[in-house]
């Protein structure tokens, strides 16, 4: 599984433009809000956490259709399923690679965007603390929907429609970590969602991969 992650990371590195595109989308989408609601610091500060969360969510969707799509089209998926690794480990490896190439870079670039949106400095650490498990949940659920929509006509359209409703709970608790006066409780909930998604999403994705390969 480590070998698979290393190989996928090497491939992602060769397609580095995909990661850069997601990051640019994240920054540009966030910036649009600043233009749309005006430069008032109080208004911006109020919506900053929600804007960053929604933009991160949408940006993380961008690379999902190639997550299994490329392997499905060029026959690599059959080889992966016959590699001796269980299907859920393949899905878990893909989710890890998605997080390392989308979630982690998004996390690193969040601070400047949040500051630009006038998020109070004291809240910045909370935002990053909520996005760390948040992006992992996104990667896991995104992997699940990427696997489920594999082989479907217009999979790229279907995938956000499956993923976005699934991440609503994470979005609610994630933004609550920043906006609530008691950040610990929603943070625990976020952790609970991550712990539930960690085994369940790869299991579901693995079953979907097997079904897609039939």
């Amino acid at each position: 599984m480590i070998a698979l992650i290393a190989r996928e990371l090497k491939l992602s590195l060769r397609h580095g433009a995909d990661t850069v595109a997601a990051l640019l989308f994240f920054v540009i989408a966030g910036t649009l809000f600043a233009f749309a609601v005006g430069p008032s610091p109080t208004v911006l500060a109020g919506i900053a956490a929600g804007v960053v969360w929604v933009c991160a969510l949408l940006a993380a969707l961008l690379p999902l259709d190639r997550l299994f799509g490329a392997d499905f089209e060029d026959g690599t998926l059959d080889l992966l399923l016959l590699s001796g690794l269980p299907a859920y480990e393949i899905a878990l490896a893909k989710a890890a690679v998605h997080w390392l190439t989308s979630g982690l870079p998004l996390l690193l670039i969040t601070a400047p965007l949040a500051v630009m949106l006038r998020l109070p400095e004291a809240k910045l650490a909370l935002l990053l603390l909520s996005l760390a498990p948040g992006t992992m949940i996104l990667s896991l659920l995104g992997t699940l929907s990427a696997a489920v929509s594999l082989g479907a006509r217009r999979a790229a359209v279907l995938m956000p429609l499956i993923t976005l409703p699934l991440v609503i709970p994470a979005l609610i608790f994630g933004t609550a970590v920043v906006t609530s006066d008691h950040p610990a409780a929603p943070l625990y909930m976020l952790g609970a969602i991550l712990l539930a998604a960690l085994p369940l999403a790869p299991l579901g994705a693995g079953a979907a991969l097997r079904a897609a390969a039939e």
Binding site: K10, L11, R14, H15, E73, D74, G75, T76, D78, L79, L81, L82, S83, G84
Partner: peptide
Amino acid sequence: HAARIAWLGHLDAVKPAL
């Protein structure tokens, strides 16, 4: 069972970037 098999499908599974 998978570990017994070498598979050559009708697709080549060649990655253009590698």
